[in-house]
């Protein structure tokens, strides 16, 4: 579904990615794990058109998308759920969801409104908070809203950046359940996580990034057993 070859990203003097290769298959969860600053977020941002690509190629369903601007990428069926939620904090929960469907609201407003209801069924707490400003939600609720907002555009392919960040373990479990359900509904997911155990438990295939390079790849189960992964995190 998605092929990355030799991807390089640099912000001015800072080279974030030194040429990585990665494949994500339809219907699978692909995980990218690694410690902070390894280049996980840059990879996702390059795919969604937010990071400056300085080399290499990204193909989605056979089409090269490296040069397409961010707002147009969304229309291809890729949605990026950003690190740290990045909600529109002053706007209501409902407005956040509607904006998630922005790319198709011109064509079919009813479908977007139906999707709002569907997402509120998915996370009933969002219905209770419907008119509340997104910034007033708790961390876990914000993550749910961020995921729902991302699903509003009916993506075929989801990029998820650190959905567990700053969340209590119980909520992380719930988020993980939702990710599994999304996979079961046929979506491909590229998951970036610092919490390796969570990610590897979910992933069909996983990549370990270190300092802008892929150092280990394998199935989720393989990597979960690999002591090298722990080393990548805690050294030793």
């Amino acid at each position: 579904m998605l092929q990355i070859r030799g991807l390089k990203v640099a912000y001015g003097h800072i080279q974030a990615l030194h040429g990585i290769d990665l494949d994500a298959k339809a219907g699978e969860i692909t995980a990218i794990i690694g410690s902070n600053g390894a280049g996980k977020t840059s990879t996702l941002m390059a795919i969604s058109g937010l990071a400056p690509i300085t080399g290499g190629e990204i193909k989605f369903e056979g089409q090269t998308i490296s040069a397409i601007p961010a707002h147009a990428i969304t229309r291809l069926g890729i949605t990026h759920i950003l690190e740290g939620r990045q909600l529109f904090a002053d706007q209501s929960v409902e407005d956040n969801l509607i904006l998630g469907g922005y790319s198709r609201i011109g064509k079919d407003k009813a479908a977007v409104m139906a999707a709002v209801e569907r997402e509120m069924d998915r996370f009933p707490i969002l219905r209770q908070r419907r008119k509340q400003q997104a910034g007033t939600l708790s961390g876990g609720e914000q993550q749910m809203l961020a995921m729902s907002r991302g699903l509003m555009s009916e993506p075929k392919f989801l990029l998820m950046d650190e959905p567990s960040m700053g969340l209590a373990p119980l909520i992380v479990q719930e988020i993980a359940r939702t990710i599994r359900m999304l996979k079961d509904s046929g979506r491909a997911i590229l998951l970036v996580e610092q919490m390796a155990a969570v990610a590897l438990g979910l992933a069909d295939r996983a990549y370990v990034l270190e300092s802008g390079k892929v150092t280990i790849t394998g199935t989720g189960a393989e990597l979960a057993r690999d002591p090298e992964v722990k080393r990548a995190y805690l050294g030793g």
Binding site: S48, L50, A70, H71, L82
Partner: peptide, 10 residues
């Protein structure tokens, strides 16, 4: 509020 988030909404 948030340029990047707006852009990924399309």
């Amino acid at each position: 509020h948030n340029r990047n988030a707006a852009a990924v909404m399309g």
